[in-house]
C-alpha cells in the first residue's frame, strides 16, 4: 500500500493535475471577453492594472473592505499555507539551509527553517479551523455552503494535521534528507529501495496520500480559484481611455456675449 501511494500514485497525480488544469484553462480561454465590463474606478494604464492585481492577490484588498472577519481567517490561512509550501520546496531542496542565502550560518538556518515550518504549520491549522467554524456557525454562510465545501476544508485540515504531527511528535518526525532522497528517486524515475525511511513512516504516507488526493481533485473543484482569480480580474480590471471632453463648435464666451437664451426684452430674474 505504502509502495503504491509513494511510488505509483505520484505519477498518476501529476498527470491528472497537469492535464486537468490544462483542460480547465482551455475551457476558460475558449470563451471570450465579449463586452467591456471594466469595474470603476477605471485603471488608466497597465501599471495601474498591475497595482490592482498586486493588492488583490497579496493583500486581498476587496475582501478586506467587504468582510473583515472573513479576511482575517482567509488572509492568514493563505499566507501561512503559501509559506508552508515554499518551506517544503526550499527546505527539502536545500536540506534546511535556505537561509544561508540571506547570511545565516548553516546551523541557524536549520533551526530557523524548523521554527518557521512548525509555526506556520500550527497557524494554518488554526486558521483552517476558524474558516470551518465560520462556515458551520454563520447562518448566511451555511446557506451558501454545499457538502464539497466542507469536505475540501476537512481534507486540508487532515493534510495539515498529519504534517503537524510529524513536526511535533519526535518519534514520528521526518527529516529533510530522506524526503529529498525520496523526491530525487521520483524525479529520476528510479524505484524506491524497500528500506527507504519514507515507506515506513505511516503519518508521512498518509500525508502524501491526502496531498495527492487534493491535487487530483484540484482541477475539478473550487480550488481552481487560485488561477480563476487572475482570469476573472483580467476581465474586470482593464485599462480604459475616456474620449476627450469638449463639444464641437462651441464657444461659450461668444454665446454669452451674444446673449443667447435671453429674450429680446427683459424677462430674466
Amino acid at each position: 500500500m505504502s509502495w503504491f501511494i509513494l511510488q505509483v500514485l505520484p505519477y498518476i497525480t501529476v498527470t491528472v493535475f497537469t492535464l486537468g488544469i490544462l483542460y480547465r484553462l482551455g475551457r476558460w480561454a475558449g470563451a471570450r471577453i465579449v463586452h467591456n465590463i471594466t469595474l470603476a474606478p477605471f485603471p488608466q494604464n497597465n501599471s495601474q492594472v498591475v497595482g490592482i492585481f498586486a493588492t488583490e492577490v497579496i493583500f486581498f484588498r476587496s475582501l478586506f473592505k467587504s468582510d473583515f472577519a472573513l479576511w482575517v481567517g482567509a488572509w492568514v490561512m493563505h499566507i501561512a499555507l503559501f509559506s508552508v509550501i515554499g518551506g517544503h520546496l526550499m527546505g527539502i531542496y536545500t536540506l534546511g539551509k535556505q537561509f544561508v542565502y540571506i547570511g545565516m550560518s548553516e546551523g541557524l538556518s536549520e533551526a530557523m527553517s524548523s521554527l518557521l515550518g512548525t509555526t506556520f504549520g500550527i497557524v494554518v491549522f488554526f486558521a483552517l479551523l476558524y474558516l470551518l467554524f465560520r462556515r458551520m456557525s454563520i447562518q448566511k454562510v451555511k446557506e451558501v455552503t454545499v457538502t464539497s465545501d466542507y469536505l475540501i476544508l476537512i481534507l486540508l485540515l487532515s493534510i495539515v494535521t498529519a504534517g503537524d504531527i510529524m513536526r511535533l511528535v519526535p518519534s514520528l518526525s521526518m527529516e529533510y534528507a530522506p524526503a529529498k532522497e525520496y523526491v530525487t528517486y521520483l524525479v529520476m524515475l528510479q524505484p524506491i529501495p524497500a528500506t527507504a525511511e519514507v515507506l515506513h513512516n505511516v503519518i508521512f504516507v498518509i500525508h502524501l496520500l491526502l496531498v495527492q488526493l487534493l491535487l487530483i481533485i484540484f482541477p475539478f473543484s473550487k480550488l481552481m480559484h487560485i488561477l480563476g482569480m487572475f482570469a476573472e480580474r483580467w476581465i474586470i480590471n482593464r485599462p480604459y481611455t475616456e474620449p476627450a471632453p469638449g463639444l464641437p463648435n462651441v464657444d461659450v464666451p461668444a454665446a454669452r456675449a451674444a446673449g443667447l437664451g435671453l429674450p429680446a426684452e427683459g424677462g430674466v430674474e
Binding site: 475551457r27 471577453i33 465579449v34 475582501l63 481552481m224 476581465i235 474586470i236
Partner: peptide, 24 residues
C-alpha cells in the same frame, strides 16, 4: 452561451462560496 462569455464561465467555475457578497 457558456461557450461564448468568459465572464459567465468564470462566475460558474471560480466561486469559493465564502459568502462575502451576502451583506453587500
Amino acid at each position: 452561451i457558456r461557450k461564448k462569455y468568459r465572464s459567465f464561465v468564470m462566475a460558474m467555475e471560480s466561486c469559493v462560496k465564502c459568502g462575502a457578497c451576502a451583506e453587500n
